[in-house]
Amino acid sequence: MSQQKKTIDFGFSEVPLEEKVKKVKGVFDSVADKYDVMNDVMSFGIHRLWKRHTIELSGIRPGNSVLDLAGGTGDLTKEFAKRVGKSGRVVLADINESMVRVGRDRLINQGIAGNVDYTITNAEALGFPDNTFDLATIAFGLRNVTNKDKALEELYRVLKPGGQLMVLEFSKVTQPLLAKAYDFYSFNILPKMGKLIADDEASYQYLAESIRMHPDQDTLKQMMLDAGFDKAEYLNMSEGIVALHRGWKY
């Protein structure tokens, strides 16, 4: 669908299709070092609860293989690695080398090693054979992907039959009053905090805009079904500020 367009959204602006990957890479190169601190500050630490909830619902067990796509600085990879143990395997994959480096160093420093692989990959062309993973996750990454439909098809392909995809992403706030407050926060406070902490107002302006351009809950669920998933459902967290979409391949 979006491949037929000559331009695509980059936040609220339109950029040539082939430019988005480079621009997104630029954003994350810029914020990589301060990414974790900014996540804590921006979400008041609530992102940890969203991620914890995601991990708990994954139902993962020792011996499983997991793909943490757009794994960034490795929050989810760390917890998955602890759960799958030495008999399992976790792959932290991200298109951004800076983020993978930060994530790898951080996990090694925390003693997570031996069952984690790191790779730089494009979500639209995953370099893994069919039916490889028991679980695939993409947390706060799908909205940055140029062709989301293609990425979902790829995620479906690399999942084993019976496997599950979990998409944790900012979504549409369901409570009108909260939505107004959230808009004010996103466009007035968030970029200023980005400037203050990471000295990068533009990147955080993009983050806020990209959240608004991301498909809402029902649209994303339908996209997952269209990509081939046999079952899809979603769970709103914090009144829809974030939604966890789950899709199963049977």
């Binding site: 991990i55 708990e56 619902l57 994954s58 139902g59 993962i60 067990r61 020792p62 499983n64 917890e79 690695a81 602890k82 759960r83 799958v84 143990g85 030495k86 003693g111 997570i112 028991d134 599950q164």
Partner: peptide, 12 residues
């Protein structure tokens, strides 16, 4: 696992 104990609500 070798990393210690993890506790979660769901299990496949």
């Amino acid at each position: 696992t070798a990393y210690g104990v993890s506790v979660q609500s769901d299990l496949q």
